Computed example of a mutant assay.
Amino acid sequence: MSENHHKLHYIELPAVSVTAMKTFYGNVFGWTFTDYGPGYAAFHGAGVEGGFDESREYIAPHPAGVFVILYSDDLEVTEAAIAQAGGKISTPTYGFPGGRRFHFHDPSGNELGVWTEVKE
């Protein structure tokens, strides 16, 4: 297993405005950004990589806060372990450039994601 297996790996913060988020976190904390379209920007320099997402397709600003994404060397094995432990899959596995991921609810109802890299 890699050293990233089952470790916090990436955090997405819901955003009403990616531009406002970049301004705030850039000015306050000195983070830098990589834009991936008009509604998404990755942030760097926060200690863990992450992004701001204003799509609201699967996360939206909410008092609960951020969307945590874990890494897995084997997405299917991790998904099965989550189900076996009482978690509920909320978004089935889907692909995106460079990887695949799914979302789940833990027993308390918190939603997290798990992703794996797909080398192209």
Rank of each mutant, 00 (worst) to 15 (best):
E120W: 08
V77F: 14
H6V: 14
G86V: 00
G51I: 01
K22C: 06
H62V: 10
E111I: 14
V77A: 15
F67W: 11
G95K: 08
P92S: 08
N110D: 07
Y58E: 09
A83R: 15
T78L: 08
L70P: 11
A42I: 08
A85M: 02
V66T: 09
R101G: 08
I69A: 05
P61M: 05
A20R: 14
S90N: 09
G98T: 07
V18N: 00
E57Y: 12
R56L: 09
T93F: 01
G30P: 04
T91R: 14
T78H: 12
T91Y: 10
S17D: 07
L13T: 11
P107G: 06
I11V: 11
G109N: 02
T116R: 12
A15F: 01
I69R: 04
G50K: 03
D74C: 11
K88E: 06
F52S: 01
F33C: 03
D35E: 05
T116Q: 14
A81T: 14
K88S: 10
N27A: 12
E12S: 06
T91V: 15
G86A: 01
K22N: 08
F33T: 06
D74N: 15
T32C: 01
E49Q: 10
A81Y: 06
T23Y: 08
N4C: 11
R56A: 12
F24E: 04
P63G: 08
Y40F: 05
L70W: 14
S2I: 06
H9M: 09
E117F: 13
G95L: 03
V16T: 12
G30W: 01
G26R: 01
M21G: 04
A85I: 04
F102T: 07
D53S: 09
V68C: 02
A64P: 09
T34R: 07
Y71F: 10
V68P: 02
G30E: 02
E76V: 15
T19F: 12
E76R: 15
A20D: 14
W31E: 00
G47E: 06
H44Q: 12
A64T: 13
E117M: 15
D53L: 06
K7A: 08
Y58D: 10
V68T: 07
T78S: 13
E111Q: 15
K22V: 08
K22E: 05
F67Q: 11
A41Y: 00
L75D: 07
H103V: 10
G109W: 00
E76Y: 14
G98R: 07
G51F: 00
S2D: 03
G65V: 05
F96E: 02
E117P: 05
A41L: 00
E76C: 14
F24A: 07
D106W: 06
G86W: 00
I59A: 01
E117C: 10
T32G: 02
T19K: 15
S108H: 13
L8Q: 11
G86C: 00
E76H: 15
P97I: 03
V66M: 09
E57S: 12
H105C: 09
F24N: 05
H62L: 11
P92M: 04
K119E: 10
P63T: 10
M21C: 11
H103Y: 13
F29W: 04
F29S: 03
P92I: 07
G30V: 07
V18K: 00
I69D: 02
A60Q: 12
G109A: 01
L70K: 13
Y25V: 00
G65A: 04
M1G: 13
Y25A: 00
T93P: 04
